[in-house]
């Protein structure tokens, strides 16, 4: 396995009086899709937000390509090449699709090759380029959120539950898009949808009650039904 692009070392995060993360340690290798699975309230979103500096870790260290980014400002972390696609899509509804995309560029100009790739993956964005983002459907908003993370070369994209609330047909199409993105970028994907996650992930970590309960390859977890049942309260067989 390649050297980790991102390391979380014994991270503790509190939100107000609540202790959410209790010593989370993760090693995300460079390249491919890596999945963080867990139930609602397990600490998945908090982990991503802590990486982005949106919530400060109380203890522990976060290293990106070996550099400690634990105390860095969110905008500085983003400028290092980490993109974040939040759970609620994170688009700016009052702006057009074009303005949303332009915001994610480094200098306000588009790399035409990248833009063409995005149009190929998400033709709706080209069609509704000058429309307000609020007028897009839920699936199109999710496409926009993901496309925004792709418009510049990023080293790491953090994606929080991209399938939430989307129709199964759109979810299947999103698998294709993520495979395309993963060819040049490392993805850390937070999910509850195990079927979606297993079709993409090379490695998987399961978080429960703010602690990493398991980490390994996705293939191991897919093979081990007992482990799935113990960690996720599900069996893959039952979902097929």
């Amino acid at each position: 396995m390649s050297a980790p692009i991102l390391e979380l070392d014994n991270i503790f995060t509190d939100i107000a009086q609540y202790h959410i993360l209790h010593g989370v340690s993760l090693h995300i290798p460079e390249g491919g899709v890596h999945v963080l699975l867990g139930r609602n309230g397990a600490g998945k979103t908090t982990t991503l937000r802590t990486i982005m500096g949106l919530w400060q870790a109380k203890q522990g260290a976060i290293r990106f390509r070996g550099e400690d980014i634990t105390k860095q400002h969110t905008s500085d972390i983003a400028r290092k090449g980490i993109a974040y696609v939040p759970e609620n899509m994170g688009i700016f509804g009052g702006l057009t699709v074009e303005e949303n995309m332009r915001l994610a560029t480094l200098d306000g100009s588009f790399d035409q090759d990248r833009l063409q790739r995005i149009y190929t993956l998400f033709p709706a964005l080209e069609k509704f380029w000058n429309s307000s983002a609020w007028s897009l459907s839920g699936g199109q908003k999710q496409m926009l959120a993901i496309a925004r993370a792709m418009i510049e070369k990023r080293d790491l994209i953090l994606i929080d539950e991209p399938t939430k609330g989307l129709a199964p047909a759109i979810i299947l199409n999103m698998v294709e898009a993520f495979r395309e993105i993963a060819r040049e970028t490392t993805i850390l994907l937070v999910e509850q949808n195990f079927l979606f996650a297993r079709s993409l992930g090379q490695t998987v970590a399961v978080i429960d009650d703010g602690r990493i309960a398991h980490s390994g390859t996705m293939a191991e977890l897919v093979e081990d039904v007992a482990l799935q049942t113990r960690l996720l309260s599900l069996s893959l067989d039952a979902h097929q």
């Binding site: 905008s75 400028r79 994170g90 509804g93 009052g94 332009r102």
Partner: peptide, 18 residues
Amino acid sequence: TVLEAIRENEMRAEALGY
């Protein structure tokens, strides 16, 4: 455009690097 983004959601604007 950045100002409008900030008005709409500061956190999202920060997460984009602003």
